[in-house]
Amino acid sequence: MARPPSDADYAEFVHGVWPRLYRTAYLLIGDHATAEDLVQTALANTYASWRNVRSLDAAHGYARKALMNTAASWFRKKGWRNEVPTDVLPESGAETDPSHRPAVLDALKLLPKGQRAVIVLRYYEDLAVSETARILDCSEGTVKSQTSAALSRLRVLLGDAVIPLTTGASND
């Protein structure tokens, strides 16, 4: 069995990975306190599961997976798939004054949790559709439809310059 790291080694590891994991958690949750709790839980689980982690080199990936699983669990408990878009979003692609457009993170908060999750997992964490589907406990088709809906809404909020409107096949 792999020997657990010393407290000093693990503390150094936590310091190193904390910023990136925190940013991912914040993008997923949209709340600083909850994001901090989420990352802390993921890193504690990583420490406790050292027989599977085995080395500090592998710990970052394990912690990232633990974070996603925990977040997905929280989403599921809150019924993320059943959420409906907020009514502050325009229903059509009508022209929006560019000076009033929100930052990407603010726009992200206006999406339902499910759509926000697929955007973060796919375009911040660069995960494939299949892995995103597994983490979020849904079909790959749901990931694609949620992604499509999210991009449509973000296009309205952020403009075509950020998310160009393409014609024909959207994925090829």
């Binding site: 407290d7 693990y10 940013r23 802390q40 420490y47 990407v104 950020v162 998310i163 160009p164």
Partner: peptide
Amino acid sequence: RLSHLLHDEADLLDIPSAPTGPVLAKGR
């Protein structure tokens, strides 16, 4: 472009200090 902006704006977030003590205690 969206991916780049996500990374750029996430990089500007205020990051709290890493709670190494509580992490180790909870892990144990």
